[in-house]
Design a binder for these strands. Structure first.
Length: 890
RNA sequence: AGGAGCGUAGCUCAGGGGGAGAGCACUUGCUUGACACGCAAGGGGUCGGGAGUUCAAAUCUCCCCGUUCCUACCA
């Protein structure tokens, strides 16, 4: 490959689109189910088709992409399925709004035309979020993209519905459900969100039949009085002992309603007396069933009072009715008290309208048996939830699960495959549209107008995306999927339901691991939300700092079990790192643009300490990074890579390698080139899962790469023989000497341009030899004109000094040395060393420690003691020397 | 009401029985051969408080304080 000079700074905008197209053209991410390697698969949590990419998506996509790219490097056949869900209510809302703006409505259009309109909308705008996911670099297989309303998935949904019905796990019934009067549909319990509202608590007196007394109930919704069918008190409440069993006369209506006793009533709350409206309150509904109470619905689907109420209230909206009821009660002097009252009120999670509990005919999934199986799969470890603390939450939800209302009174979604015979009323649930009634043979059948909850189809995602109910090669190869990565907020909505459905229909869990990732919050720790306007737009970040900078930031902060507080400055900071990579590569290519000589790395390691050191460190890094990724510790992987690349590779290795690269020794020069190229290219491979673009761009400029597509390059081989404790220890000593000189230079304000001499008194022959052998490196790094090390090196008279481990470092200074400054510097170091030594000696002086602590811990402490004592001895010698010099001078 | 998490350097957070760490910020000095999106040197912490277990506690247990979140209910 030819080389061209790299630009001075990394320009992400220029390269990202190019590589996305390249990977796509190369079909890099389309696996062959018959190909070699262990399968590894992920299905994307399908984003809402109306959605736009937010930080939570960006984090989740980054995590999944790291996993997929990493496992691809390990030679697995990786399938990552992308797609979107049809978001019934949300999508219908969006299209209805645009119709309203044009002065039309879905009713005006009619069902078929409306659905056609939604499909058109989807065609035009529905690809937005997928396009954004693509820009993040997601290595998904676009050839297998799915949509929950696709033909195949729709067929699967119908199959599932019918089978569940046949298994007795789906039923239709009149039950109380959460009703959104604006969306005109039922909502599942999970789709109701509670928010504090300031309301009023009304105390209303109900006359007790046959007496002159009253019972006083407390309510926040006085208009529901019209539907009351009982009054309830606690059985042990002395205040009401006498009235239990009697009847109350419902004000404004005149209905005779029983006064019942039930322990559900809390004596302390309000008046301790509860009005019961089974048709319009969840708990009252349960109470009504228990006591066989009448259910009288007094509101219609739009929240207006209906014909079951006295005539004067009919047609009134619920709030208008409330006003009227309150006025009338006042008039009758039955209203005892009105007080301000803050309480939680259920709202529709899509439109924030206050929901009304409402009795109507709906379809339910009987969740009990399904939940039991879903729980057991996690108990048995067939699916592992990470981090583990979420397991309990998962159990709690399944243990308290209620039947799932799956019918929705909207048009956009999977139509329920149930028909009623017009002539005999027979209910038919079937895969194919029936042409005649199986009961009476009648030919006129009417399909249920409702559609299914979007989450019903989402729950099937792991297997329907792979072609179920057909027995496809994909299913055989890639199901169960390896991991599901998601935020905790849809653990119930989605994860638990996928578990139930996957186990029921595939007889196998849908995924081996569930990784619950962090929630991305703003810099103040608040949840990012549209209403607060505190969201950081990932696309803006990608444009400003590059996609890799955003990805690296998210990875670096993705510690398990902890939320991420994200500020733009963080992303900006990691852009510096991306740029650093770019420049390191730019430097490397100045030297190895035409390749490096073939040479065994074990040979190259012998060419110099720095080469041996960096190769050893690289080998350790490989292990750390793969352990981190496999343990979902992305922050750890990012941090290790950052530290290695910047601190070890750039700050030390690249600097030291300059000596060999610019030197005359052809062997050393060749070794340096070989090592430089190897470390750079293998580091790029290790970093590629996190920062795919910059690594691929640099890769394309490297000489001698057999595979141009970095996404296809295997994880670098382990060469454990290159790991060398000796090289790393020798390097550490060298580092101490260099830092020692630099420190003296900085503290004594010696201009960086001035070349110094450094002398090291080293008793240990091996240490002395190692330092001497690396004199050129040390001189270059510390800007020296002369360097000497050995057991016989003596302290020059006028010099600054420092202790480097067990060695003494001297920097002779021409002109006067300020002994006071010197003395102070050494004293400071001495105090620190004494403090450390004291801690160690105290430990070793403790007999219990020596006898009870593990031998290796004690041995380590002794080693530490030796090293610190030697260092301290050195420091004291140096101080003595100064003291003498001061005396001489005086 | 039940449950979970968090509290470590100015900020954001790793770590998780045996040397208190990183990044950013800060101070000082630098157009040193890729990089000022940079280089070099440095300062900075009763690991929220208290008790216990242990030879040894930032780490384990209990209590308290502060904080965030989840679930359920709220007539």
């Amino acid at each position: 490959m030819t080389s061209e000079a790299l630009s001075k700074g990394y320009e992400p905008a220029d390269v990202e689109a190019k590589w996305i197209a390249y990977w796509q053209d190369e079909k890099t991410f389309t696996p062959d189910p018959d190909g070699p390697g262990e399968p590894y698969s992920i299905v994307i949590p399908p984003p809402n088709v109306t959605g736009a990419l937010h930080m939570g998506h960006a984090l989740n996509i980054t995590i999944q992409d790291i996993l997929c790219r990493y496992h691809r490097q390990l030679g697995r056949k990786v399938l990552w399925v992308p797609g979107t869900d049809h978001a019934g209510i949300a999508t219908q809302n969006v299209v209805e709004r645009s119709l309203a703006a044009a002065g039309s409505s879905r009713e005006e259009l009619g069902r078929e035309a409306f659905i056609e309109r939604v499909w058109k909308w989807r065609e035009e705008y529905g690809g937005k979020i997928l396009n954004q996911i693509s820009r993040l670099g997601a290595s998904v297989d676009w050839s297998r993209e799915r949509f929950t309303m696709d033909e195949g998935l729709s067929k699967a949904v119908r199959e599932v519905f019918v089978r569940l019905y046949e298994d007795g796990l789906i039923y239709q019934g009149d039950y109380i459900i959460n009703w959104c009067p604006r969306c005109h549909t039922a909502l599942a319990d999970l789709e109701v969100e509670y928010a504090p509202h300031i309301g009023k608590l009304y105390h209303i007196r109900y006359p007790v039949e046959g007496t002159e007394t009253f019972v006083t109930v407390a309510t926040t919704r006085p208009e529901t009085l019209l539907g009351d069918t009982a009054v309830a008190v606690h059985p042990e409440d002395e205040r009401y002992k006498d009235v239990v069993g009697k009847f109350a006369i419902l004000p404004l209506v005149g209905r005779r309603i029983p006064i019942i006793a039930d322990a559900y009533v809390e004596r302390e709350f309000g008046t301790g007396c509860l009005k019961v409206t089974p048709a319009h309150d969840m708990n009252d509904f349960e109470l009504g069933r228990k006591h066989g109470l009448e259910v009288i619905a007094v509101q219609d689907a739009a929240g207006r009072i209906n014909e079951n109420a006295p005539e004067k209230y009919r047609g009134l909206d619920r709030l208008a009715a409330r006003k009227a009821v309150v006025e009338d009660l006042k008039e009758l002097t039955l209203l005892d008290d009105i007080r301000d009252y803050e309480h939680n009120v259920g709202e529709c999670y899509r439109c924030r309208t206050v929901i009304e509990p409402f009795v109507s005919k709906q379809w339910f999934v009987k969740t009990g048996p399904l939940a039991k199986v879903a729980r057991k799969a996690v108990e048995d470890g067939r699916t592992i939830i990470l981090p583990d603390q979420w397991t309990k939450t998962y159990y709690d939800w399944l243990d308290n699960i209620r039947d799932w209302c799956v019918s929705r009174q909207i048009w956009w979604g999977h139509r329920i495959p149930a028909w009623t015979c017009d002539s005999c009323g027979e209910l038919v649930v079937a895969r194919e549209t029936p042409t005649s009634c199986p009961a009476c043979g009648g030919s006129r059948l009417t399909q249920d107008p409702d559609v299914l909850d979007t989450w019903f189809s989402s729950a099937l995602w792991p297997f329907t995306t792979m072609g179920w109910p057909d027995q496809t090669k994909e299913l055989a190869t890639f199901y169960p999927t390896s991991v599901l990565s998601t935020a905790f907020d849809i653990l119930f909505f989605w994860v638990a339901r996928m578990m139930m459905m996957g186990l029921h229909f595939m007889d196998e869990v849908p995924f081996r691991h569930v990784y619950i990732h962090a929630l991305v919050r703003d810099a103040e720790g608040r949840k990012m939300s549209k209403s607060l306007g505190n969201g950081i737009d990932p696309l803006a970040m990608m444009e400003r700092y590059g996609t890799d900078a955003l990805r690296f930031t998210l990875a670096a902060f993705a510690a398990m079990g902890r939320d991420i507080k994200l500020a733009e400055e963080r992303i900006e900071g990691y852009r510096h790192f991306i740029n650093k990579m770019w420049n390191a590569a730019r430097f490397a290519l100045m030297h190895v643009a035409d390749g490096a000589p073939e040479m065994e790395l074990s040979q190259a390691a012998k060419a110099g300490l720095c080469h041996a050191m960096i190769l050893s460190r690289l080998e350790r890094l490989k292990g750390t990074v793969s352990r981190a990724i496999e343990g979902y510790q992305f922050n750890e992987a990012a941090q290790e890579l950052y530290g290695f690349f910047w601190r070890e590779f750039c700050d030390w290795y690249l600097e030291m390698a300059k000596v060999d690269l610019g030197g005359e020794d052809e062997f050393k020069k060749g070794a340096a080139k070989r090592v430089l190229l190897t470390v750079l290219s293998e580091t790029l491979t290790l970093m590629h899962p996190i920062v795919p673009f910059v690594t691929q761009e640099i890769w394309s400029k490297l000489p001698g790469t057999a595979e141009p597509n970095l996404a296809k390059v295997p994880y670098p081989p382990l060469r454990t023989e290159l790991i060398s404790d000796e090289a790393e220890a020798a390097m550490e000593l060298l580092r101490l000497v260099v830092v020692g000189v630099r420190n003296i230079r900085a503290e004594l304000n010696i201009n960086p341009g001035v070349k110094l001499t450094a002398l090291v008194h080293a008793e240990d022959a091996a240490q002395a030899a190692s330092l001497t052998a690396n004199a050129a490196m040390i001189s270059f790094m510390a800007k020296l004109e002369r360097f000497e090390a050995g057991p016989d090196v003596a302290a020059p008279k006028a010099s600054a000094s420092a202790a480097c481990g067990s060695c003494a470092l001297f920097v002779p200074l021409s002109g006067a040395v300020d002994f006071d400054v010197e003395f102070l510097r050494l004293s400071k170091e001495e105090v620190k060393t004494v403090k450390e030594l004291t801690v160690v000696e105290k430990k070793l002086g403790n007999e219990d420690f020596v006898s009870r602590a593990p031998a290796d811990v004690v041995a380590k402490e002794r080693e530490k003691q030796d090293a610190l004592s030697e260092k301290l001895a050195r420091l004291r010698e140096l101080k003595d020397r100064i003291r003498k010099l001061m005396a001489e001078e005086a």
